[in-house]
Simulated assay, not measured.
Amino acid sequence: MTQPEFQPEPQAEPQPQPGTPDTGNTVPVARKRKPLIGWIVGGMVLVLLLCFGGCGALLATTNSGDKSDQGKAAASTAPTSPSTTSAATTAAAAPATTEPPVPTYETPTKNDFKLKVKTLSKQCFGSAGCNITYRINVTYTGTGLDPSKTYEVTYQVKGAEDPIINTFEATGDSASVQQEEMASIKRSGDKLTAVVTDVTEF
């Protein structure tokens, strides 16, 4: 069997006695105590706010750093207009390629050729003299011969018993001379020399 709930009878509030002045301190007033759970919830909210605030500041700093790095990278890779303008100006200022000037040649004279007689062999016959085999070596002292022209050079060999006159051809940087020539001298000690007497263009 369930027993009926027992509810205490409400106590009557004490009434002030007639003739007694109401000082206001005689009636006890119950103070309401704030529950502890309110403080706990408020503390947790404060802690969470502080944590989220710190994380937000950290993310903001990281994002700003990333943006600045991206900006630097973009600035370093992006071409600058002054460089392009400078390159264009340099290219425009470069002179156009021109053909090399055509070389000029002087007309050779007899003084531009130096000749030397090279003795190849000598055969002597006592008082009758000697026979000499020789070749002319040619040196050109001018600025250069025109390779498109050929010159005939006349020279004379001195020191032989009989005068010897011969020619060779010169063109560009070469001369066509005889490989061997013969001459007779009176004494074994005589020397042969050669000089150019004339230069004519073919």
Rank of each mutant, 00 (worst) to 15 (best):
T2E: 09
P4Y: 03
P4H: 06
F6K: 13
F6P: 00
P8W: 03
E9A: 12
A12M: 13
A12W: 04
E13Y: 14
P14L: 10
Q15H: 05
Q17Y: 03
P21E: 05
T23Y: 13
G24V: 06
N25H: 05
T26V: 09
V27R: 15
V27Q: 11
P28A: 13
P28M: 06
R33D: 11
P35N: 09
P35T: 13
P35L: 10
L36E: 12
V41A: 13
M44Q: 03
L46V: 08
L46N: 00
V47G: 06
V47W: 01
L48T: 13
L50A: 14
L50M: 14
F52D: 07
A57L: 14
L58K: 15
L59D: 09
T61A: 12
T61P: 02
N63E: 11
N63W: 11
S64N: 15
G65Q: 04
D69L: 11
Q70K: 13
K72N: 10
K72W: 02
K72C: 03
S76Y: 10
T77S: 12
P79M: 02
S81E: 03
T85V: 05
T85E: 02
T85D: 02
T89E: 03
T90S: 14
A91T: 05
A93Q: 04
A96D: 05
T97N: 05
T97G: 09
T97L: 03
T98M: 11
E99G: 12
P100M: 05
T104L: 01
E106C: 02
E106K: 09
N111P: 00
F113A: 00
F113P: 02
K114Q: 08
K118L: 11
S121Y: 08
Q123G: 07
F125K: 15
A128Y: 13
A128I: 08
A128Q: 11
G129E: 05
N131H: 09
I132E: 02
Y134E: 02
T143M: 09
G144W: 15
L145S: 05
D146S: 10
D146K: 15
P147N: 00
E152I: 09
V153M: 04
V153I: 03
Y155F: 14
P163M: 09
N166G: 05
F168M: 10
E169M: 13
A170G: 04
G172A: 08
D173Q: 13
Q178C: 04
Q179W: 06
E181K: 10
A183R: 02
A183S: 01
S184A: 08
I185Q: 10
S188R: 14
S188L: 08
G189W: 10
L192V: 07
L192M: 05
T193G: 06
A194T: 07
V196N: 03
V196P: 04
T197W: 01
V199Q: 03
E201G: 04
F202K: 15
F202E: 10
